[in-house]
Design a protein around this nucleic acid. Structure first.
Lengths: 250, 250
DNA sequence: AGCGCCTCAATTGCATGCACTTTATTCCCG
DNA sequence: CGGGAATAAAGTGCATGCAATTGAGGCGCT
């Protein structure tokens, strides 16, 4: 039976998960900009836990690629390069095509209703802060992935979507999201209809247009640090923006 | 207490990574069977570190889906369901199609040589223990992914390949790998030629055949535990092997 | 004998403490 | 007045200790 006794504070005790969620959200809403420092004790104090827990949470986030963890140095919010952003979007396209392929024509009515409700929420937040609409747009895709009932797919889509969100906050300009909302509605429509090929094409072009709208050029519009501005010119050994398949021997 | 203390040069740093690598390898070589218990202190003692580090490593592995981490319970090697195995292979197919799409016609000669050398190693190990040839076959795909120079792609392909490897050890029978070796050679050939469509098709059918060869049926050929044998019949609430897109409301 | 309860060993959850590394500051010298 | 080494401060890396929870075996009851 559910021996749910003596739960001392009803907190649920998923402390690490709580911190991860909070941090993820803060990151994708740009409350924490790429490069922002995340000291363990500051986090611990902020969430009322010890450094051990904060550290563990940072480890998880690092595994997801949202924070960078350099030895003996303060953890920072990840600063993906332009090439990494492109790569993330490429992967995301394939993953989400798989999502809609599995979903096309198989959605129940309550699921469709949930999707429409979400898009309505996106619509309502259109005049709100930019960060919120970006987050909602991302969560639409995650919601879609969850409907596949495939935990693995949910995990990967979530991760890569968060990463794309992060890169959007680095390379994108003020952002216009109405078009995305429309595309979301079209997606739902096609999913309900059940035309697999069509819905996959829609998802592809949707993500492709988001990527192209955002990742305009390798010239960083918002440099926050000298090193980052200089990064594209560094070209230390294997250039990231050209000649992908080169360095072989490890 | 036998091993090196305060060895600052050389290893020194990446204790967690070392444990992760060792565990990963042990898991995919079936030295650790699915469901095997992984107590923190036992791990810590085995690797000469404290529970803190072992715990952190388990956290990482759990994030990769190789171990299951239940609250207040001993961590165990993950025991993916048959449906999860199929899902993993579906994702893997898309990911690796992306890999070869980026690689086709772009490989340098040393890279091709490295790939051929790896397949030769696979060939050499053909008569050795089964676990080793499975590991080598998996590592071939990871090697391929690494040549894309896309860290994200490498991570995802590695993870999903390890997961597939794990499921293979649950659902597959004695295994015959010569055909896979041949398919690897064909893959290299097509990559060198540069016919993108052809190489994508090859990769698709290669992975598909591996999956179909392995994931024969939801009837577990090798039950190692009563609970696992009974698992397919449990059917606790939402069956995993049918009606994918069902439960919607969260 | 079967079934439930109780107690105890095993194990995890988490915080704290200490050593070491990096980073910021200060102070001395050119 | 500027540059660089010494020094202080901040932060991470890791082990250990203690409380809380779980699983198992023993005991009495029916």
């Amino acid at each position: 039976m559910t021996s749910k006794r003596t739960s001392k504070s009803g907190d649920g005790s998923d402390k690490v998960g709580t911190i991860c969620r909070a941090l993820r959200r803060a990151i994708i809403e740009q409350a924490l900009e790429p490069g922002a420092k995340l000291p363990e004790d500051a986090l611990g104090e902020r969430f009322g836990v010890s450094r051990t827990i904060a550290r563990h949470a940072l480890g998880q986030l690092a595994a997801e690629g949202l924070v960078e963890l350099r030895r003996n140095r303060i953890a920072v919010v990840a600063t993906p390069s332009w090439q990494e952003a492109r790569d993330a979007f490429d992967i995301r396209i394939e993953l989400e095509r798989l999502v809609v392929r599995q979903l096309a024509g198989r959605l129940t009515k309550p699921q469709i209703a949930a999707l429409k409700a979400h898009v309505d929420a996106e619509d309502a937040a259109r005049n709100g802060p930019d960060a919120v609409s970006i987050r909602l747009a991302t969560e639409f895709h995650i919601l879609l992935a969850q409907m596949t009932n495939s935990p693995i797919l949910v995990r990967y889509v979530s991760e890569v979507a968060y990463r794309c969100c992060l890169t959007l906050s680095m390379f994108s300009r003020p952002h216009s999201s109405e078009c995305a909302i429309n595309e979301h509605r079209q997606l739902i429509e096609a999913l309900a209809t059940g035309d697999t090929a069509q819905v996959m094409k829609l998802m592809h072009s949707h993500l492709d247009s988001v990527a192209n709208r955002a990742l305009v050029a390798p010239s960083p519009p918002r440099g926050r640090d000298l090193l980052e501005i200089l990064a594209p010119y560094a070209d230390d050994e294997d250039s990231a923006r050209n000649g992908r398949a080169r360095a072989a021997a490890e």
